[in-house]
Design a protein around this nucleic acid. Structure first.
Length: 565
RNA sequence: GCGCCCGUAGCUCAGUUGGAUAGAGCAACGGACUUCUAAUCCGUAGGUCGCACGUUCGAAUCGUGCCGGGCGCGCCA
C-alpha cells in the first residue's frame, strides 16, 4: 500500500521529467523502488537516476539531483512548510545518496496508518487480488498407493499445500489435485506381494516376487484379509483382489497422514480414467495428425527431437502399452481443457527428466507451455546426532511421515519443510526440531504470538481492553523500533504476492522469523503496558496488529498460532 | 560423456530477480528475570560469496570456462 504510493509518486516525477526534457522515456519500467536495507538510508530508495544515467551516458548524481528537485516540488518536503503540504504527502525527507540513489524517508504518520488498516482487515490482512480469480491447478504428492508416505513425500506435501495456500491468499482460485495410477506394474507387484504374505500367514506355499514390497505394512494388509476373508482367497491366482485391498488400506493411510498435517485435496485424478474416456488415444491421434509421431521397431515414437529436445521418445512400446509420457501429456492437456489458466506441478528432483517431454506434448497440442510451472524440490536428509539417517526405498527401511509427525509434531514438521527453498537439499535436524525450548525456530515464532496474547490478557486485567480508533493516539509511537515494526508489517502484502508468484513459501517463513525477532527485541527493551495510559493503548494497538500479522502468516504455512505456551 | 540443481561464517541456510558497508539461526564466549511469559533479549567473535576471466556506473546475483557435490539421462514411473 505505502510502497505503491511511493512508487506512484516517483512514477509521476519520472513522467514530469520527460515533459520537462530532463530525460527520455528510455528508463520507463526499468527502474525500481525498493525498501532500503540499511539504517539511515531512508525507508525506500529508487535507482531511477542510475538507470537513466546508464542509458543516456550521464552522471548519476546529476540526474538524481534533478529527480530530487521534482520530488521536492511535488510534495513540498525538506521545507519548513512540509507539514502544511497536501494531506497525502508521504515524505518527511528525500535525499541523494551513494552512487545516485534517491532515498525517501516516510513520515511517521504514514507508518502509523498501518495499524488501523491491519485492525480493520484482520484475518484478511496481507491477502490480495493479484491472481484476479484465475484458476490454478496445483498438483502435488501424486504418490501411487504402494506404501506409506516417506519423508520425501512429506516435503512435497507441505510445499504443495503452502503454495496452494499462498496462491489462494493472493486471489487465485486454487484446486489441489492428487494424480495417481492404480493400474501399472507397481500395483501388480504390490498385489503379488500381499498375496504372498497372505499365503504365508495361512501356511500355504508361496513365492515372494523378486522386487516385491518388503515393508511390514504388507503383512498388516495380508493379516486384514485373513481376518476378513479367512482362507477364501487361497485358491485365487489373480492378484487383483489383493491389489484392491492394498490400495484401499494404503490410500486410507496416506490420507490419514495428510490429514494429520492439515492437508486435504479437492480432487484425486486417476490415470485410468484417461484411458477409459479415450483421452490417451485422442492425444495419439492428434499427434499423428500433426505428423509428430512415427513407428520404429514396433514402437510409436514422439518427434521430441523436432520440438527442440535432444532425442525422440517412445510413447507406445512395442508391447502396445503406453509409456508414462503419453498419459502425462494427456493429463496435462486435460487440465487445460478443464479450464485452468495456470498449472503448477510439484515434483521431486528425480522426475526432472519427464518435464521437457510433457511440455513438448503440451505445446504440440496447442497449449502454452509457459502456463505450466514446475517446482522441483531436492531430497530430504534426516539428521540425528549430527549423522544422516540412511534410507532405502527398496528395503523399506525409510522413515515415514507418520513416524516423523510422531517424533517432532505437525508444526515443527511443516515449519522445517518450509524453511528451505525447494531448490536446496533439505537437512532435517531431528534434534533441533524436537527441542522443546530455546533454539527451535518454530517455537520462536509461535512464542511471539503467545507472548502477545499474554500481554492482552494482562491488559484486560488492568482494564485496558480493546480501544476504539478514535481514542488512539498513534503519534505516541515514535521509537525507531516501533516504526521499524510498522514498516515490516506494511511489507507483508507485497511479500505474500511475490512469494506466491515465485511459488516460494520459504520467503514467508523467513519473514515470520524476522518479524518475531523484531518483536522479541522490542518487547525486551520496552514495556507495552506502563504508567501512561495513552502510550499503553497505542502500543497495545501496535501489538494487536503484530498478532494479526503473525497469525495470518502462520496460518498460511499451516502452523498453529497458540495463545499460550 | 550430456542435461537440470546446488556451492555464501565452524554447521544449516537466507539474500527482495543487478544496488550502497554480504545477513540469520545453530554451535562458541560474556552479560540481562522482585515489573506484561527468559521457549526471550543484549554484546563479542566468525567471510577470498568454490576458482578464473568477462559484461557495466555497480556482480553473491548475469555470461563463458574450470573444480567439487546432488538428481536425472529406458520400449521403468
Amino acid at each position: 500500500m505505502i510502497r505503491e504510493r511511493v512508487q506512484a509518486s516517483i512514477d509521476r516525477c519520472f513522467a514530469l521529467g520527460i515533459e520537462q526534457g530532463l530525460w527520455t522515456d528510455a528508463a520507463a519500467s526499468a527502474y525500481t523502488v525498493e525498501e532500503s536495507r540499511r539504517e539511515g538510508q531512508g525507508d525506500y530508495a529508487t535507482n531511477l537516476a542510475m538507470v537513466v544515467a546508464g542509458l543516456e551516458k550521464r552522471r548519476p548524481r546529476e540526474v538524481a539531483e534533478s529527480l530530487l528537485g521534482l520530488l521536492i516540488d511535488a510534495s513540498g518536503v525538506n521545507s519548513a512548510e512540509s507539514a502544511a503540504a497536501e494531506a497525502d504527502n508521504l515524505f518527511a525527507k528525500v535525499e541523494v545518496a551513494g552512487p545516485g540513489f534517491v532515498n525517501c524517508f516516510i513520515r511517521p504518520e504514514v507508518w502509523h496508518s498501518v495499524i488501523p488498516e491491519i485492525r480493520r482487515q484482520g484475518a484478511e490482512y496481507g491477502r490480495s487480488q493479484l491472481g484476479r480469480g484465475r484458476k490454478v491447478l496445483v498438483e502435488f504428492v501424486s504418490a501411487n498407493p504402494t506404501g506409506p508416505l516417506s519423508v520425501g513425500h512429506g516435503r512435497q506435501a507441505v510445499l504443495g499445500d503452502a503454495i496452494a495456500r499462498l496462491l489462494s491468499a493472493t486471489g487465485y482460485v486454487v484446486t489441489r489435485e492428487y494424480y495417481y495410477n492404480d493400474a501399472g506394474r507397481q500395483m501388480r507387484v504390490l498385489g503379488e506381494s500381499v498375496r504372498a504374505r497372505y499365503l504365508e500367514l495361512l501356511l500355504w506355499p508361496f513365492t515372494f516376487p523378486e522386487d516385491g514390497y518388503q515393508g511390514e505394512y504388507i503383512r498388516e494388509i495380508a493379516q486384514a484379509l485373513v481376518t476378513e476373508q479367512g482362507e477364501a482367497l487361497t485358491t485365487v491366482t489373480d492378484y487383483a483382489p489383493f491389489t484392491r485391498k492394498a490400495e484401499e488400506v494404503i490410500f486410507a493411510d496416506i490420507n490419514h497422514t495428510l490429514a494429520r498435517m492439515g492437508i486435504c485435496f479437492d480432487n484425486y485424478y486417476n490415470e485410468r480414467s484417461l484411458y477409459q474416456q479415450g483421452l490417451v488415444d485422442d492425444v495419439v491421434a492428434a499427434l499423428r495428425e500433426k505428423n509428430l509421431v512415427y513407428e520404429l521397431d514396433g514402437a510409436l515414437w514422439f518427434k521430441t527431437g523436432e520440438l527442440g529436445l535432444e532425442q525422440d521418445r517412445v510413447i507406445i512400446k512395442s508391447s502396445g502399452e503406453p509409456t508414462y509420457r503419453l498419459p502425462d501429456i494427456a493429463y496435462h492437456r486435460e487440465k487445460f481443457r478443464r479450464g485452468y489458466d495456470w498449472l503448477v506441478n510439484i515434483f521431486g528432483s528425480d522426475h526432472i527428466a519427464t518435464i521437457p517431454d510433457v511440455l513438448a506434448g503440451v505445446k504440440a497440442l496447442g497449449y502454452d507451455p509457459e502456463r505450466v510451472s514446475t517446482v522441483i524440490h531436492q531430497f530430504v536428509t534426516l539428521v540425528r546426532d549430527g549423522k544422516p539417517i540412511k534410507m532405502s526405498t527398496r528395503k523399506a527401511n525409510f522413515v515415514t511421515v507418520d513416524q516423523l509427525l510422531a517424533e517432532v509434531g505437525v508444526d515443527a514438521t511443516r515449519f522445517f519443510f518450509l524453511m528451505r527453498k525447494a531448490d536446496s537439499q533439505l537437512e532435517f535436524d531431528l534434534n533441533l526440531a524436537t527441542r522443546q525450548s530455546q533454539e527451535n525456530p518454530v517455537y520462536y515464532v509461535q512464542y511471539a504470538h503467545a507472548r502477545l496474547c499474554s500481554v492482552f490478557r494482562q491488559a484486560a486485567r488492568q482494564g485496558l481492553g480493546s480501544t476504539s480508533e478514535v481514542a488512539l493516539d498513534y503519534g505516541r509511537l515514535e521509537l525507531a523500533e516501533e516504526l521499524m515494526l510498522l514498516r515490516t508489517m506494511a511489507a507483508m502484502p507485497a511479500l505474500l504476492a511475490s512469494a506466491a508468484q515465485a511459488l516460494e513459501p520459504h520467503r514467508l517463513v523467513f519473514y515470520l522469523q524476522d518479524l518475531a525477532a523484531r518483536f522479541h527485541g522490542y518487547y525486551n527493551r520496552h514495556r507495552l503496558i506502563g504508567d501512561d495510559p495513552g502510550l499503553s493503548r497505542a502500543r497495545l494497538a501496535l501489538a494487536e496488529a503484530l498478532r494479526v500479522v503473525l497469525a495470518n502468516g502462520l496460518k498460511l504455512i499451516g502452523v498453529k498460532a497458540p495463545e499460550k505456551m
